[in-house]
């Protein structure tokens, strides 16, 4: 790697991985916290939808004429990688705080790649911004699940 410029393919693959792993994570929460299963299940579906939207946007706009190999400068994917493993028998607070951290990371990822892709067709940064807003709303919804601090 040249250290600072990623290909569009690498960015989209990271997005796919992120959405897949988040969906898996929320499936686990759905099992562990049946009282909130409906909400966590909706998160699973939302992750799957976001993943599809990003890939579809990429596949429908990628072209030999776009600078797909040179547009994502200054992005380091390591900055968005977090610990995904839930501790055994987590409390709701532990689980939600971890989910919030993951969503915060996702929001930052989509915000950064949207900024980096402004020179590409408008549909590409728009798709990233939309994904970022979805994660932002989810982070806020998670906040409501947190029990009051003791």
């Amino acid at each position: 790697m040249n250290g600072s410029t990623l290909t569009a393919s690498a960015i989209v693959s990271f997005s796919q991985d992120l959405e897949l792993r988040l969906a898996t994570f929320y499936k686990e929460l759905e099992q562990r916290f049946p009282e909130h299963a409906e909400l966590f299940h909706s998160f699973v579906l939302s992750c799957e939808k976001t993943g599809k939207q990003v890939v579809r946007t990429y596949q429908e706009t990628v072209s030999d004429a776009l600078e797909t190999g040179y547009s994502f400068g200054g992005i380091s994917l390591e900055a968005y990688r977090l610990d995904w493993d839930l501790p055994e028998a987590p409390s709701l607070r532990e689980a939600v705080e971890m989910a919030q951290a993951l969503e915060t990371s996702a929001v930052a990822f989509y915000s950064d790649v949207a900024g980096a892709s402004e020179s590409l067709l408008a549909t590409i940064p728009r798709a990233f911004k939309r994904a970022g807003r979805t994660h932002q709303r989810r982070r806020e919804a998670l906040e409501a699940l947190l029990p009051d601090p003791v």
Binding site: A8, S9, S63, T68
Partner: peptide, 12 residues
Amino acid sequence: KTIDESRGETRR
């Protein structure tokens, strides 16, 4: 060619 270039060709 790179995978980005190939996908671009497929799209075209």
